Computed example of a mutant assay.
Amino acid sequence: MPEQYYYTEVQPVKCIEIRVPLVIESVDVEAVIDNVLTLPELAIKVDKIRASVRDLTATPVFVDEAHHGHGYHDYDGYHDGKHGKYGKHDEYVLVHHDSHHPHRDLFLKKIIVNGILHKQIFYVNKNNEVKHTAEELSFSKLVELDEPVLIRHKHDVFIQFRHVDVDMNWELHRACRIHETAVIQATARVSEDRKIFVQTCPSPDESPVGNLLRDGGLEAWASPYAPVFWGASNVSQCSTAHSGSFAAEIGLLNTQLPGALFQMIHKKIVGDRQYRLTFWVREDVLGATSDFSLTAEVVFYDQYGTQIGIGTQTLSSTGIPDNSYTQVQFATPVTDESVDSIMVRFNFMPGTGNTNTVKIDDVVLECMRKRG
């Protein structure tokens, strides 16, 4: 069995279930095939024999621990006698390969190896000509494990062969009969497909590239008040864009009420990094009173939805131009390693008597490369 150990994480980690083959036993197999072949004509000598093994397969033999003390019984009706045919007395019960006993501990006790020995025989006939003939012999070998191996699900057990080798010896008798002895050696590797959980984590040297936001240009709208990939409150579609066809205008529905534009990000999130938010902003003058603030936030959450960090930048209405777009950019603090999702949010907070709105366009959130 592989080495096992237990490790307690200091922080919550994300794990996924995968299915992997686990090698549970490795068995040496040796089969001796003794055979006499009659050649189609008289021969002076056998020049060479090339041998190979084909269609090598193995069938596992499973057993169940017997606690009743009455020898070996197959639960499907088979009886091996008083002392049993397989294993030691009063320890195991043979279980058919296709039987179903989900509530019993099953063990792998033996494997039955089957294959075909293929031979290419080259001989010299009485006319001193090199001739050829072929032969195939089926063989079977029962191999018992030193100790039974506990398995979880017998239908997930499979056997593969490695280091298959054939050693041929022969002797020519009576000018037409060859006495052949083949020794087949191989290693049978018994594996079982098992489901395990593994921790997933990004490479410490890699950061996602590009804009993590969907539709950062705010071009996709389901209606004049609902951008497709953003959540919105008191937001309207605007054709005065920094680039493209549209931008988002916050506060246009009611300049006296708060407004918000936000998006959640769940993919390509890397912990222990800084993130950079870049956007373009412009004030829309609709009246005489310009009294509002705009706060841009990058909020970090763990897998349970608990806020674990935030980066913010607040702009007053006096710092936002009303005749052209200006670019704003800021970097967040370094995130916690357990960060699982990010929210980018713009909050519009009007003062008393405010009459103006703010436009947002070309929003980009980037993960900054970790400094060595």
Rank of each mutant, 00 (worst) to 15 (best):
V198I: 15
G311N: 05
W280L: 02
H118N: 10
I44H: 01
V157F: 07
N125S: 08
F161S: 08
V235W: 01
R54K: 15
A220M: 02
E147T: 12
I111P: 08
H132A: 03
H179C: 05
V13L: 03
D28R: 10
V20R: 12
V281T: 14
R174V: 11
E297I: 00
S191H: 11
I24T: 04
H68M: 04
E3C: 02
R369S: 10
F330V: 06
H96F: 11
G210H: 06
R214G: 11
V53W: 02
I111W: 05
A222K: 11
D105T: 15
H118R: 09
M349Y: 02
M1P: 09
E144N: 05
S239T: 14
K141C: 15
G305K: 08
G351V: 07
D55Y: 07
N323F: 11
E129M: 10
I308G: 03
K109I: 00
Q307P: 02
V63C: 12
S99T: 14
Y123S: 07
K109S: 15
A260C: 12
V190I: 15
G372L: 11
F346Y: 13
D90W: 04
P208E: 05
V46T: 09
Y86P: 00
I116M: 12
V364A: 02
V20N: 03
V358P: 06
K110R: 13
D47R: 10
V198H: 01
A175W: 01
V190E: 10
P350V: 09
H97K: 14
D362E: 14
A296F: 02
G217K: 08
V124N: 08
R369V: 09
D156C: 10
Y92I: 12
F161T: 09
D291R: 07
T278K: 14
M368R: 12
H153C: 08
P21R: 02
E192I: 05
E171H: 15
F246Q: 11
F122V: 12
N354E: 09
P12D: 13
Q4N: 09
H103F: 13
L150E: 13
F122L: 06
H96E: 14
H96K: 13
L42E: 14
H266V: 10
K126I: 14
S52N: 12
G311I: 04
V270I: 01
D167V: 12
G217F: 02
K268C: 06
I196H: 05
R174A: 13
W170N: 12
R369C: 01
V164R: 07
A232H: 03
H118V: 09
I342A: 05
D362K: 04
E25R: 07
C367M: 01
F330E: 04
K131H: 07
G87H: 06
T314W: 03
K119Y: 01
R214Y: 05
I159N: 09
P40Q: 04
L286H: 15
K14P: 00
T8P: 00
F348Q: 08
V281G: 01
D156N: 15
G77H: 11
V344I: 10
V183E: 03
F107V: 05
R54L: 14
I184E: 08
A222Q: 12
L94W: 13
E249C: 11
A51S: 15
S52W: 04
H101P: 00
G319Q: 14
